[in-house]
Amino acid sequence: MDIISTNGLTKKYKNQIVVDNLNLNVKKGEIYGFLGNNGAGKTTTMKMLLGLTEPTSGSINLFGEDIKRKNKLLKRVGSLIEYPGFYGNLTAYENLKIFADLYGVSKPKKIDELLEIGGLSQYKNKLVRKFSMGMKQRLGIIRTLINDPELLILDEPINGLDPNGIKEIREFLVSLSTEKKLTIMISSHILSEIEQMADKIGILHKGALCDEINVKEFKNNVNKFIEIKVNNVFEAVRILEEKLNIYSYEVRKDEIIIFERINDSHIINKTLIDKGLKVTKLYVNTLCLESYFTDITKGRVC
């Protein structure tokens, strides 16, 4: 079942289309990375998912139900939108207590458990006003778990954490998804932050979903290609087609990029040389997600 599914979700502010006809599907237990540059519309999308702002058009289903019946569904969701806010004059414990009370969570141990998980036990009675950015971020993340949610919606939650902190949070989120079957939607503008944990990555560019990448599949196949540099591109292309039946290729300036028969690079090389061409470069390359993402966001792909 899809935990999140949107249909033609669109948001306009005045004349600007901020989210453009989005059809998202996030499956149970999945970690869905929502990638996009600043201003791509990630926060706006997540706000709509949480009923914080109304879509201009389109519909949203959470747990298979329309979010018009929001209150019932929100009980099952934990969320963190942009920088977490806290009551600065209260301690970490008191801040969590307020949320626990409002959700009607009456397990007194829960808060201590969460503080433990977030590595904040020793700061339990410290005023949040005196917390560092990273500590607040952790506190914000554990706060989303106070109501034992089935779905987490996290908007750039690892912004402002140091590399160790990022690693910890990443491992923690992955464990939540594998052990508790929690579904997690996490946004970021930095691929490397989510690449290692996401099962699927949706790339948002100027409000539109450009591509959805199944991370495992991407790593396994589609991403390899052969780059060749020869003295006569025109002749080389003819040989590729006629002698080797290679049609899946692209010519970029003086280079040929071949997307098929990746494992036959030595045959390609030999054939070209036998035909008297000078091969100055032959290289099996892996397209990394990073450059793919850059391509998309620079408008080269969609």
Binding site: L52, L74, L80
Partner: peptide
């Protein structure tokens, strides 16, 4: 006002309270 300064309304309103 304090929910505005502490940037809290966006959190508070995702809790199912009226």
């Amino acid at each position: 006002e304090r929910e505005f300064t502490d940037n809290m309304y966006k959190h508070v309103f995702t809790i199912p309270i009226s």
